[in-house]
Simulated scan of single mutants.
Amino acid sequence: MVELTTPQPARHPAPTAKAQKLAYLRLERPDLDKAERFLNDFGLRTASRSSRALYLRGTGAEPFCYQVTRADKARFVGIGFEVDSREALTRLSQLPEASAIQPVDYPGGGEVVRLTDPSGFSVEAIHGQTPVEVLPHRPALSFNSPVQPCRINDTQRPPLAPPDIIRLGNVVLEVADFQATCGWYTQHFGLIPSDVQVFADGSPAVVFMRLDLGDIPADHHTLAMAQGFMPAYSHSAYEVIDTDAVGMGQRLLKAQGWQHAWGIGRHLLGSQIFDYWEDPWAAKHEHYCDGDVFTADQPMGVHPVSREGMSQWGQPMPASFTKPKLTQAALRALAHNLRRSPDLTVKKLMTLAKLFG
Rank of each mutant, 00 (worst) to 15 (best):
R151M: 13
Q148E: 12
R157S: 12
I152L: 15
T181I: 13
N153Y: 06
F189Y: 05
T181Q: 04
Q179L: 12
Q187L: 03
F178K: 01
Q148L: 14
L168W: 07
V171P: 09
Q179S: 13
C182F: 02
N170G: 05
V172D: 03
I152C: 07
V175S: 09
D164C: 15
D154Y: 07
P158D: 08
P149Q: 15
D164W: 14
L173S: 01
P158S: 05
H188L: 05
I166Y: 01
R151I: 11
A161F: 09
L173N: 04
P149F: 06
P149N: 08
N170Q: 15
L191D: 01
E174H: 11
V172C: 10
P149W: 11
R151F: 02
P163I: 14
P149I: 11
P149G: 07
S145L: 14
V172L: 12
T186V: 13
Q148H: 08
R167W: 06
I152W: 08
C182K: 01
E174I: 15
Y185K: 08
Q156S: 01
D164L: 07
P158F: 05
C182E: 02
P146A: 07
V172R: 12
I152D: 05
I166L: 14
G169Y: 00
T181R: 00
L173I: 00
Q187D: 10
R151A: 04
T181N: 03
D177S: 05
A161R: 14
A161G: 05
P158Y: 08
V172Y: 06
I152E: 04
Q187E: 15
P159H: 03
R167I: 11
G183S: 10
L173M: 06
P162C: 07
V147L: 12
P158V: 14
V171C: 12
I152R: 02
T186R: 08
I152M: 08
A161S: 13
G169Q: 04
G169A: 14
L160G: 03
P146M: 10
A176M: 08
W184L: 14
V175M: 04
E174A: 12
P146F: 00
V147T: 11
A161T: 15
L173R: 01
V171H: 00
F189K: 05
V175Q: 02
G169T: 11
I165T: 14
D154P: 06
F178G: 07
Q187H: 04
P159L: 12
D154G: 00
T181C: 00
C150K: 11
P146E: 00
N153M: 13
P159N: 02
R157A: 13
Q148T: 13
D164N: 14
L191M: 10
T186N: 04
R151K: 10
G169N: 11
A161D: 12
I165R: 03
P146N: 04
A176F: 05
F189H: 08
